[in-house]
Design a binder for these strands. Structure first.
Lengths: 210, 210
DNA sequence: CGAAGAAGTGAATCATGATTCACTTCTTAG
DNA sequence: CTAAGAAGTGAATCATGATTCACTTCTTCG
């Protein structure tokens, strides 16, 4: 034999792979996973379409890789915010939500792609994993808050989901469209909304009907 | 001339058009607008593909019609709930949210398609209109509640959006996936979450950081 | 160098699915 | 009943975009 993969080559391939993934993420942030086209991705990545297939067996697997990459970034951001201000749980949650919302606002299509775009089964599986991690992060914070006495008794898992959901979806309207007023204000309001929800005493209905 | 459209024909065409739209909605509820295929739709509607084009100039316009049709149904449901129990605004909102959530739970893909699926520009325009109506409905209810003294002072428009968003998105997780526990419980919790948010006194942070 | 073994290329091929259109089958009114 | 005017049909055509592959260009190492 006369050829054996060397470090230099390994690094170059690694770099190419990263270029492909990050470029793909840029495209996803414009048109979602369904809008991602292999030819365009290849062009913008500076490689030939065939090369994409040297790195990923199919578009589906490429999408999964992009999904996981983007996901790691988002989760890390939120996790970092939650770890700061451990002393004041509500504040920590507020900061994490702000981070989450701000990032979503800046890249609404990306947020949507990660959260709800209908994609191939394989990618959905990755999303499931991602949501679990996310929910877990907030659930832990809420549980800590309850233990520390800074939050009232509640189902931390359900509140956690509602929290993320409230912020995520509540933002879609204000930004995706006419984005007339200041999105900043919308964020602040949504967070206020969430804090009230998790810090308030349960609301009891006078009477209920189905 | 020897042919002039008569009532009988007009009615039949009307019926066919409705069949196409309702059938299309069924398909959308399975795979979203992107999953809608003209050939399949024609087959299930009992007409030829060419016929679809006698009724709609393009798939895009067909989708818009489907969107508006589905939208009317959803808005009407929520509106009805809000009009009952005018006396007790929080309860009315809770009921409306329950309706919204329950329906979304039963048809998650439809809900997603109406709310966030990336679709053609024309359809997006219809969605914008729809969201406005929706938000307006809740905003009015909240404003009424403030006026009646049953809700504290707040920006009814922003709360309205957060409300719908919290329910809509918070539900996606629990149902789209492992749907382990009772989705009923998730709904109840989310609504409780929302009621606390709009009925509670604003939460004030000890100190804030960016 | 030179051969072996990859990695890279991009035009050609395939698959999918929207749209068209020449033709057939009603409907209507005289 | 018949001609005019639609409505309905579905195979053929087009457009789009993923995937393949025969070929070219590195890389490595004896």
């Amino acid at each position: 034999m006369a050829y054996r993969e060397t470090d230099r080559v390994r690094e170059r391939k690694q770099a190419t792979r990263e270029t492909i993934v990050t470029t793909a993420l840029t495209l996803v942030s414009e048109g979602g996973f369904n809008g991602l086209q292999m030819a365009q991705l290849a062009r913008q990545s500076g490689v030939a379409t065939g090369t994409l297939y040297r790195y990923f067996p199919s578009k589906e697997e490429l999408c999964t890789a992009v999904f996981e990459y983007a996901t790691e970034i988002e989760v890390a951001q939120v996790q970092q915010q939650l770890q700061e201000s451990q002393q004041n749980i509500p504040e920590a949650i507020a900061n994490a939500l702000t981070t989450f919302a701000t990032r979503a606002l800046k890249a609404p299509t990306t947020a949507w792609a990660l959260i709800a775009e209908p994609v191939a089964p394989e990618v959905v599986a990755a999303r499931l994993h991602y949501r679990e991690r996310y929910a877990g992060l907030f659930a832990q914070a809420i549980a800590d808050g309850i233990a520390a006495g800074s939050l009232p008794e509640q189902d931390s898992n359900l509140s956690s989901r509602a929290l993320v959901g409230a912020i995520a979806e509540a933002l879609i309207g204000p930004l995706a469209q006419h984005s007339s007023a200041a999105p900043e204000q919308a964020i602040a309001h949504s967070i206020q909304f969430c804090l009230q929800a998790i810090t308030a005493k349960p609301y009891s209905m006078t009477r209920s009907s189905s």
